[in-house]
Computed example of a mutant assay.
Amino acid sequence: MSESKRELIMNAALALFVERGFDGTTVPMISEKAGVGAGTIYRYFENKEALVNSLYQKYVGEFLEGLQDGYPRTSDDIREQFRYIAKQTIRYSKSNLSALLFVDSHTNGHYLDEASRDAYMKMRKFLCEFIEKGQKNKVIRPLPADALIAIIDGAFIALYKCIMAGEIEETPELLAGVEEACWDAIRIH
């Protein structure tokens, strides 16, 4: 039973942090949305910062695990590796869009602790290693890795916002086309 209350709290906090941001979300708002007393939140989390950091570490870790699981690390085919990263990003976006939006909007938060920053750096390192390998092989544009990651990240997040809003219909052809367009944006032509 206690695990389900913790999950209720985390799910409520996720929704509110995505909708209102960290500073616009209060513990009483979280407790109301979760259907638990504010004191219950403090049984699981020392404060709002501990809660946001738990969420951040959870979702960055899940996303990175999804990227790494089955990643063709030993392949020299940069295009194949990019296709895999895009496929896993799409898969994660479909089932965890709120988590991806949360991570995206909280990455530079002043309230993130060292463990959260370390989790982010592990994910960033994975993506930078991919970019740097592609640049070394003269397949990916010689721009800063963070700029290239932002191009890809921004495209997928904006796409899924449009899909969730009903502005664009998600089809396999659309996803394949967006993946190809993102590849075209970062590769050397």
Rank of each mutant, 00 (worst) to 15 (best):
P28Q: 06
Q57A: 10
G21W: 12
E129V: 01
M29G: 07
T89G: 06
G177P: 05
E170Y: 01
I186T: 07
D146K: 09
P144I: 00
F63R: 13
M123N: 11
T171L: 05
A165N: 13
R20F: 13
D118Y: 05
A99V: 05
G37K: 09
Y160T: 03
R20E: 12
Y44M: 05
F130W: 13
K58D: 02
S75E: 05
T171E: 07
I9H: 10
M123F: 12
I41K: 08
I85V: 15
R43E: 11
L8S: 15
H189E: 15
A13V: 02
R6V: 09
L97A: 09
K5P: 01
A99T: 04
E170P: 05
Y59M: 05
L55Q: 07
E65G: 11
R187T: 02
D76R: 14
F102Q: 08
K133V: 00
F126Y: 13
E129Y: 01
L14V: 05
N11T: 09
E80N: 05
A181Q: 14
V52F: 09
K58H: 12
R141D: 01
A185C: 08
V27P: 01
T26C: 13
N47S: 11
T25V: 09
H189L: 08
R43A: 11
E179P: 00
I90L: 08
N53G: 07
L143G: 00
Q81E: 14
N53L: 08
T40W: 02
K122Q: 15
E173M: 07
R187V: 04
A158H: 13
R141I: 00
R141E: 14
R117D: 02
A147I: 04
Y71N: 04
V18W: 07
L8P: 00
R20W: 07
T25E: 11
T74L: 15
K5Y: 11
N137A: 10
R141K: 10
D69C: 03
V27S: 03
R20I: 02
Y120W: 14
T107G: 13
A145I: 00
S98A: 12
G21C: 08
S4P: 01
D23A: 13
T107N: 15
A99F: 03
R141P: 00
D118W: 01
D146A: 04
G166Q: 10
V139L: 14
I186R: 06
L55I: 04
